[in-house]
Computed example of a mutant assay.
Amino acid sequence: MVEWLGSFGKSKSNGVTRQLYSNEWRCAQQALEKRMKKIGLDVYFDDVGNLFGRLTGSQEDSTTILTGSHIDTVIDGGKYDGAYGVIAGMIAMQYLFEYYGVPKKNIEVVSLCEEEGSRFPMTYWGSGNITGVRTMEDVRNLVDLQDTSFIKAMHESGFGQGEYRQPKRDDIDCFVELHIEQGEVLEREEKSIGIVSHIVGQRRYEITVIGESNHAGTTPMAWRKDALYVASGLIQLLIQKARETNSDLVATVGQINLEPNIANVIPGKATFTIDIRHSEDDVIDRFSMGIFKEFQSITDSHNTELRIKNWMNEKPVKMCEKLIEISESILNKDQTPYKKMASGAGHDSQVFGSFCPTSLLFVPSHKGISHSPHEFTSTEDLEKGIRLLIKVLYELAY
């Protein structure tokens, strides 16, 4: 099923490009719709393109146990990211119905329309609409790199025009997401399952150092206001302090831009990004405040100007302790090696985690590679994840 779903948007390098509201995305959702119907689920879309397969519970007015993940990918991404959670939910529900019949509570598997933000500057569009933190107003003026508007792309895919039910939900009892780790902790520590306790908070900044452009040959070293030289010192300090601060804190500089970016001109402006992550918001606060105080001191000493722009501030999200206990009990009984861990990557579970009780479960990723055609998880590990999901859903719904 992984290979089958990966065929929708398959790239020349054997990766997958399946962006929101593209033809490849639409074909994948339609194929999943047929597959869900084939295994006996009641299937429907909502008005933003989330796809649901439902086992209706025997209890009147019962709430819904929701499982699944996202269908979209980054450009030339892997076959497992998101897709595995959708496939796992379908297999688990088929198994439960065949062996145990109708559940007491409703169970639904969701193929969320979008999580990655790889086509439009918008993430968690699928889960955000279900939980009510995203609305049509958020995408009204968004366009992709080809200048296609978000609204136009959505309409061309048949959504966003009121033909399907509204996405906001108020009947969800809990959300369980099974996902590949996208890191190498589980593989290195020889654990079969990761139980996520927290999804880390993310703070992103744009740092600009403004100096003075001048001739590379005629300006003495002592008189220069070299923005790149100063920025490189800030970056080195950042990484050094992150290593010293906390073993779970990570800081990354992923992008640098120079002006005028000419070989024989001293850079007058250097801009770089900072991504800081940790499971505790106050740790991020203290680190950020401390490092920026030192940044200011350094730029002042070089007669340069410092500008700091905070453009993302995602809070850490704690997963549900009760759901964690259910998974731990199952794994201990089965003598399956597992690890409680924080997730360093963002997932739809962080959106659901502020809305309803949520559990995020990981299976190993080979060498930690993800967002790549080389993304891989063994069939054995995929199966172990699905076996756990089956038992968790049985506890919750039966």
Score class of each variant (00 low, 15 high):
313 N>I: 05
313 N>G: 03
313 N>L: 09
314 E>C: 14
316 P>C: 09
318 K>L: 08
318 K>R: 12
319 M>W: 09
321 E>L: 14
322 K>R: 14
322 K>I: 13
322 K>C: 03
322 K>H: 14
323 L>M: 09
323 L>W: 08
324 I>A: 04
324 I>F: 06
326 I>G: 00
326 I>H: 00
330 I>G: 03
330 I>T: 10
331 L>A: 03
332 N>H: 13
333 K>C: 13
333 K>Q: 14
334 D>W: 13
334 D>A: 14
335 Q>M: 14
336 T>V: 14
336 T>I: 12
336 T>G: 01
337 P>A: 10
338 Y>P: 10
338 Y>G: 12
339 K>W: 12
340 K>N: 09
341 M>S: 05
341 M>P: 06
341 M>Y: 08
343 S>P: 06
343 S>C: 12
343 S>E: 07
344 G>I: 02
344 G>Y: 11
344 G>N: 06
345 A>H: 04
345 A>T: 07
346 G>K: 06
346 G>Y: 06
346 G>A: 12
346 G>W: 06
347 H>P: 01
347 H>V: 03
348 D>F: 00
348 D>V: 02
349 S>I: 02
350 Q>L: 11
351 V>C: 01
352 F>H: 00
352 F>M: 00
352 F>K: 00
352 F>E: 00
353 G>C: 07
353 G>Q: 08
353 G>F: 08
355 F>W: 12
356 C>H: 05
356 C>Y: 06
357 P>W: 00
357 P>K: 00
358 T>V: 06
358 T>S: 12
358 T>G: 02
359 S>P: 01
359 S>L: 15
360 L>F: 03
361 L>C: 01
361 L>M: 02
362 F>C: 10
362 F>Y: 12
363 V>A: 02
364 P>D: 11
365 S>D: 06
365 S>P: 07
367 K>I: 02
367 K>N: 14
367 K>C: 07
369 I>C: 04
369 I>N: 07
370 S>T: 03
370 S>F: 01
372 S>H: 13
372 S>V: 04
373 P>W: 11
374 H>M: 07
376 F>W: 15
376 F>E: 12
376 F>V: 12
376 F>R: 12
377 T>A: 07
377 T>P: 02
378 S>V: 04
378 S>R: 04
379 T>G: 00
379 T>A: 07
379 T>E: 12
379 T>L: 08
380 E>C: 10
380 E>L: 11
381 D>R: 11
383 E>N: 11
383 E>W: 08
384 K>I: 11
384 K>G: 09
